[in-house]
């Protein structure tokens, strides 16, 4: 648990992040001029690109936590892993939704098997399965190791998935999602990027606290009245 003095940091990050996202989005929606070829639809990039960066960051952080837990066995990394996984799934799902909303007016279809978005969809499934795995793990130690191992393997798989989808699709698709934004429009992008960064960092910290509280409850010794009657817990294997 973070010390009393730093309890305010996470909520502050969330508030500041939210404010930045509002500001950046307002700028992108109202102040920035429409782009030459893509017209109004380009504005979606001001949230889509920052979401993409941050989804990648959040899942990379999850991978870091998984490694850290496997190497140190310190429970705070498992708490953070649980939080980061949830955040990563939320951001990746959001990314897929934004991508579909962007694709419809641009290509006429909701989904065009773009390698980046398809890899994101696969990542959502791969990473989203880990909380399901956790739900069935009764022994905290084993559950934590399994989540970390599954996270490491999922992360190692991502580049392979990306390249295979890219080759698979290259015969059918000449275009890819253009993420180039001309320099005049950088500000909304940067503001949103930092906004979402602060937002997810704060949310992960708060979510990790939730995990820590739940873990404490799970591993707490039973109250004295029940301890006398209780039998020692059996291992799951």
């Amino acid at each position: 648990m973070s010390p009393r003095s730093r309890q305010w940091l996470a909520p502050a990050l969330v508030v500041v992040g939210a404010a930045l996202v509002c500001a950046g989005s307002a700028w992108g929606l109202f102040k920035a001029p429409p782009e030459v070829f893509m017209g109004e639809v380009q504005r979606i990039m001001y949230v889509h690109v920052p979401t993409a960066w941050n989804a990648m960051l959040a899942l990379s952080f999850a991978f870091g936590c998984a490694l850290a837990f496997l190497l140190t066995g310190d429970w705070k990394w498992d708490n953070r892993l649980e939080a980061a996984l949830e955040m990563g799934v939320v951001l990746s799902l959001l990314l897929c939704m934004q991508g579909a909303i962007w694709a419809k007016p641009t290509w006429g279809v909701w989904w065009d098997w773009d390698p980046r978005l398809t890899t994101t969809a696969v990542r959502v499934l791969a990473v989203g399965a880990i909380p399901a795995l956790r739900a069935f793990g009764e022994v905290p130690g084993r559950r934590a190791v399994w989540s970390a191992v599954a996270c490491v393997i999922a992360f190692a798989d991502v580049p392979i998935v990306y390249f295979s989808v890219k080759w698979w699709n290259s015969l059918h698709q000449a275009q890819s999602t253009p993420e180039t934004v001309s320099s005049a429009f950088h500000w909304p992008l940067r503001i949103n990027a930092f906004g979402i960064l602060f937002l997810w960092t704060g949310l992960v910290a708060l979510r990790a606290r939730l995990s820590a509280l739940r873990l404490r409850e799970e591993t707490a010794p039973p109250p004295p009245a029940e301890a006398a009657a209780a039998t020692p817990a059996q291992g799951a294997w």
Binding site: V14, A18, V21, S25, L29, V36, F37, M38, G39, E40, V41, R43, I44, V47, H48, T51, M87, V90, L93, L94, M97, Q98, I101, W102, K104, P105, T106, I196, L199, L203
Partner: peptide, 26 residues
């Protein structure tokens, strides 16, 4: 070629979805 006409409702939708998902999760 050409400019994509309209599409404002998609832009609004994208921003609305983003706001909704992030606030709901928070």
């Amino acid at each position: 070629s050409g400019v994509i006409q309209g599409g404002e409702e998609f832009v609004i939708a994208a921003y609305a979805v983003t706001a909704a998902v992030l606030s709901a999760y928070a």
